[in-house]
Structures are given as structure tokens and as C-alpha cells.
């Protein structure tokens, strides 16, 4: 009973994701020019970015915890959240790329949001390089925590401020049909919000499993 109480959110995640897939493919969606049926990608593409931002935000929280308390566990947690966040970033890029092929006619277009995410991936690849270049555990944890916090700030500027300054092909930017108050009707909201929660919980679940595996690996080494 005690374990069930702690695991209920995993069950919630599974239920929500089954609901997302079922209702996402079968539910009613508004007919939009250009978008048509691909509007369903909202549940599988946009949610990836939400999950990524939540995961990276949690990682920054643990980096701050490390800098405050110098507990190596926080560093392990923080770096794992970055890893899982990057998995979701790649998934977001792939789902976006497939969607772009059918709506914009190309796998990769010169769009500020796409470019920003590509730069974001570079920023976090540099993070893993920084980690591998430090021989000392404590030093690695301290320096990568500092870099992680700084990178997150720059990344937020990159994806929230810059795309708004130029026209984007994305729905909602530059006069394209979008999921704004007028367009995103209540039927889609009923799937979209649960989808965000479901994918986010799944992300945290994966991260927790990774953290537990890493902990066991560390104990075996000792």
C-alpha cells in the first residue's frame, strides 16, 4: 500500500498517455488551412518542448542545490535531468521535422525557432564536454553546475525572446493560423493539457530510473 501511494503518479502518467494517444488520433479537431490533420501534432510535438523545459528547469534547481550544499548527489541528479531533457529535445526536433515536411514542404527550414533549438543542442553538448574535461569529481560538479545555470539563462533568452523579434513560420507567429484563444478550441484543450502533464511525468519517470541506475553503478564501483 505504501509503495502504491508513492507510485500513483506513474500510473497517472500511463493513463494520461494512453488517453493522449487515443484521443489525439481519434478526437475531433478544427479544420485549419495548411494545418489540416497535422494539427494533431500539437499533442506530440509541442508537449516535447514543455517537457524539455520542465526537465532542464529541474536540473537548474539541483545545480543550485549543489552549489549551496556541495552534495555530489545533487550533481548526479542535475546532470541526469539534462540528459533526459536533451532526449526530449531530439524527439521534439524529429516530430517537428516530420511535421514540417508535410506542412512547409521541407525537413529543415530557416526558421528562428528551429535554429534556436539547434543552438540549444550545441550549448548542452558543450555541457557534456565540460563534464568530461574535468578529472576531479568535486571540480567537475562545481564547474558544470555553474555552466548549467548560465546556459539555462542564455537558452531561455534564445527560445523566448529572439523568436518573437523576427517572423516565424510557426503557427501563431507571423500571421499563421495558430492555437490561440480563437483557434485552439475546447476539444483540443481537453487533450493538450493532459498530454503536457502525461509527457512531463514520463520525462521525470525516465530521469528517476536513470538516477537510480547511476546510483547503483556508483555503489558497485566502491
Amino acid at each position: 500500500m505504501e509503495t502504491l501511494k508513492r507510485q500513483y503518479w506513474k500510473i497517472l502518467s500511463i493513463i494520461l498517455l494512453i488517453y493522449t494517444v487515443y484521443a489525439g488520433f481519434n478526437g475531433q479537431v478544427p479544420r485549419q488551412p495548411i494545418l489540416n490533420e497535422t494539427i494533431r501534432n500539437l499533442y506530440f510535438h509541442v508537449t516535447m518542448w514543455f517537457t524539455m523545459i520542465f526537465l532542464l528547469g529541474t536540473s537548474v534547481y539541483h545545480s543550485i542545490q549543489y552549489l549551496r550544499k556541495s552534495d555530489l548527489k545533487s550533481d548526479l541528479i542535475s546532470s541526469t535531468y539534462v540528459e533526459v531533457g536533451m532526449v526530449f529535445a531530439v524527439l521534439g526536433l524529429i516530430t517537428g521535422s516530420i511535421w514540417a515536411k508535410f506542412t512547409w514542404g521541407d525537413w529543415w527550414t530557416n526558421d528562428p525557432k528551429l535554429n534556436s533549438v539547434a543552438i540549444g543542442l550545441l550549448i548542452y553538448l558543450a555541457y557534456s564536454l565540460v563534464r568530461s574535461s574535468m578529472p576531479d569529481e568535486m571540480q567537475k560538479a562545481r564547474i558544470s553546475s555553474v555552466y548549467n545555470i548560465f546556459a539555462f539563462v542564455i537558452f531561455m533568452v534564445l527560445i523566448w525572446i529572439l523568436p518573437r523579434m523576427t517572423d516565424s513560420l510557426h503557427p501563431g507567429n507571423g500571421g499563421n493560423p495558430a492555437f490561440s484563444k480563437m483557434d485552439l478550441d475546447n476539444r483540443m484543450r481537453m487533450v493538450f493539457y493532459p498530454a503536457i502533464i502525461g509527457w512531463t511525468l514520463l520525462g521525470f519517470w525516465i530521469a528517476q530510473l536513470r538516477i537510480r541506475i547511476k546510483n547503483i553503478e556508483q555503489q558497485n564501483e566502491l
Binding site: I119, G120, L129, V130, S133, P135, A151
Partner: peptide
């Protein structure tokens, strides 16, 4: 400067961070 190969690290870290 904390890493071992600081010239490479400098280039790899600074270019993406300076893009915005």
C-alpha cells in the same frame, strides 16, 4: 581555465553561448 584543454573548451562553450 578550470579544464584541462582550455583553448578548445573556450571555443566550444563560447560560440553557442554568444549566439543570442
Amino acid at each position: 581555465a578550470q579544464g584541462e584543454n582550455s583553448a578548445t573548451l573556450m571555443a566550444v562553450m563560447s560560440f553557442p553561448l554568444i549566439i543570442p
